[in-house]
Structures are given as structure tokens and as C-alpha cells.
């Protein structure tokens, strides 16, 4: 695991970079317009990153596949989201499903 100074530095860089991304639009929008092509590419890139994160965080642990409890919970939450359930319901259903399966000793 990383040391405290490393984690502090990493947090600072992430915070500074994020703030720069946020401020750039309001500060520059009167002078610069973002090419629509670049904007669309960025949108797709974000979706791809987050989708990949869904896949890895739902299905893997370190370098191997997880047991079925977590993916099942995620699937239940995703179903709620797809049926347009409120955000809160999605979170609770996902966690409850996984917790219940683990209670029944599903890994």
C-alpha cells in the first residue's frame, strides 16, 4: 500500500487537475469554443471508462473473478436503474441483494 505522503500528493494532484478542468469552461468560454468533435469524443471516452470500471469492479477482485454474490447484486441494482427506479433504490437493492447472498454463504 502507498505511504501517507504519496497519498497526500496524489490527492492534491487529482484535486488540482479536477478543479482546472472545472474552471476552464467558465473562465474561457467567452474566448474559446470546444470543437463539437472533441466534445463528442470526450463523451464517448467517459462512457467507455466508466463502463470498463463497472465491468472490473463488478466482476473482478485483484486479478481473478469474484464469487457470484457481488455481480448478482450489481445486476439487481442495474435492473432497478433500467426500470427507472430512484437512485436510492438502486443502491439499496444492490447492497441488500449481495448482503443477503453472503448471509446464505454465497461467496
Amino acid at each position: 500500500m502507498s505511504t501517507t505522503p504519496e497519498l497526500l500528493a496524489a490527492t492534491a494532484v487529482l484535486a488540482a487537475g479536477t478543479f482546472a478542468f472545472r474552471l476552464a469552461g467558465p473562465a474561457l468560454r467567452s474566448r474559446v469554443t470546444l470543437p463539437p468533435q472533441a466534445e463528442r469524443l470526450l463523451n464517448v471516452a467517459v462512457v467507455v471508462l466508466l463502463a470498463a470500471l463497472v465491468a472490473t469492479s463488478a466482476l473482478t477482485d485483484a486479478h481473478s473473478l469474484t464469487g457470484p454474490a457481488r455481480p448478482a447484486g450489481v445486476a439487481a441494482g442495474a435492473l432497478c436503474a433500467w426500470r427507472k427506479a430512484p437512485f436510492l433504490a438502486v443502491v439499496l437493492v444492490a447492497a441488500a441483494t449481495t448482503a443477503l447472498l453472503r448471509l446464505l454463504s454465497v461467496p
Binding site: 463523451n43 464517448v44 454474490a69 457481488r70 447492497a95
Partner: peptide, 29 residues
């Protein structure tokens, strides 16, 4: 034991769904 590790991916799915309307984006994802 609380199943919280399933909450995060589920939240991401909820955030992502509206962006997956076009076939090209779905293919990329």
C-alpha cells in the same frame, strides 16, 4: 457483509444508462 461493494458498480450503471442511447456508444462501451 453489508454488500457495499455491489453498491458502487450499481451506482455507475445508473449514471451510465442515459448515455448509452446511441448504438455507437454502446458498441464502444
Amino acid at each position: 457483509s453489508l454488500g457495499l461493494d455491489a453498491a458502487f458498480p450499481a451506482v455507475l450503471v445508473a449514471l451510465l444508462l442515459p448515455s448509452l442511447r446511441t448504438a455507437a456508444t454502446r458498441r464502444a462501451a
